[in-house]
């Protein structure tokens, strides 16, 4: 859950602008002339190299397909969840809550790039004005703290509408290579900032579901960018792959059936180990931007 986000296009534009100035002031050298290896030219999304931008088209298309799949499942599972809420089935609603959220957590950076959708769906208490607080975590509080579904009927209906709106908007959302790169890191930062600390699911303690989903969402992006990354920096590509594997090994013991243990069951040193494994992954992952050039 994060409301401020960097506008990727702005960053890219800045890079193009400055590189462009450089070309003019340096005896007509173009930006692409100064990239001295073939790899560099393939990878760069910098100025004027339209064919370079095209290199990510396949990855972007595949990612959009993934996002749409996740959103479809998200709408479906959210519907099941809110139906349980509206029918007053407390235990069923509690059981459906965390699994439904995982579809959202996998693609969170996209939702964050779509205006108010993220706060409407995923705001925690005190993230927004009390009068505006709605979405999953409002219902979470009712289910686990107030121990009732009563009074949540309208909130449930609005949540489903927000989920459907997200599904509609992702069809045409701007997705570029920069969003993929920063999105993967953002997913892991989400884990570092709120899941590791147990703040995200403060009433249900289902933080590990979100944790796993964020990591899976980041891994999906890594897999889509892997071929490009392997061309530019095979060592980095390999390191990231190894660290994803290591983190998943750390998470494995906490899986129970199709779900995960309550975050309250984790010992302090287990949380710290997860956090440090996550940092070990996020550090090299944050260098995936190398495929975007300069």
């Amino acid at each position: 859950m994060k409301f401020s986000y960097v506008v990727p296009v702005g960053l890219l534009a800045a890079s193009i602008l400055f590189a462009g100035c450089g070309s003019n002031e340096n005896n007509g050298n173009t930006a692409s002339d100064s990239n001295t290896t073939a790899d560099a030219q393939v990878a760069t999304t910098a100025p004027g190299t339209t064919e370079a931008a095209a290199d990510f088209t396949a990855a972007i298309d595949k990612y959009r397909t993934y996002v749409i799949e996740q959103c479809d499942a998200f709408v479906k599972e959210t519907e099941n969840f809110i139906n349980a809420v509206k029918e007053g089935k407390l235990e069923e609603a509690k059981a459906l809550y965390a699994p439904a959220r995982m579809y959202y957590e996998r693609i969170e950076p996209i939702a964050e790039a779509l205006g108010d959708l993220d706060p409407n769906i995923d705001a925690r208490e005190n993230d927004v004005d009390a009068t505006e607080w709605r979405g999953f975590h409002r219902i979470e509080k009712s289910l686990w703290v107030e121990k009732t579904t009563k009074g949540m009927e309208t909130t449930a209906d609005i949540l489903l509408k927000d989920a459907q709106l997200l599904r509609a908007k992702v069809e045409t959302a701007d997705i570029d290579a920069n969003l993929l790169v920063t999105g993967a890191v953002e997913l892991l930062n989400e884990v570092s900032s709120s899941k590791v600390t147990g703040e995200e699911e403060r009433y249900s303690h289902t933080d590990l579901y979100d944790f796993v989903a964020n990591v899976e969402g980041a891994e999906k992006i890594y897999e889509l960018l892997k071929p490009e990354l392997a061309k530019i920096d095979p060592t980095l590509e390999q390191t990231i792959g190894e660290r994803f594997a290591a983190l998943k090994t750390e998470l494995a013991p906490f899986k129970v059936g199709e779900g995960y243990v309550s975050y309250e069951e984790l010992k302090e040193e287990e949380v710290r180990k997860l956090s440090q494994s996550l940092d070990a992954l996020a550090e090299p992952l944050s260098n995936m931007g190398t495929i975007l050039g300069v």
């Binding site: 590189a19 050298n29 990239n35 990878a43 760069t44 980095l236 390191t239 990231i240 190398t290 300069v294």
Partner: peptide, 20 residues
């Protein structure tokens, strides 16, 4: 930024981890 934009700094050396 202009100079580095032209020079391609980081593109070839980038990456994470110790080696890079």
């Amino acid at each position: 930024l202009r100079l580095t934009g032209v020079g391609g700094l980081g593109l070839l050396l980038g990456g994470g981890g110790i080696g890079s």
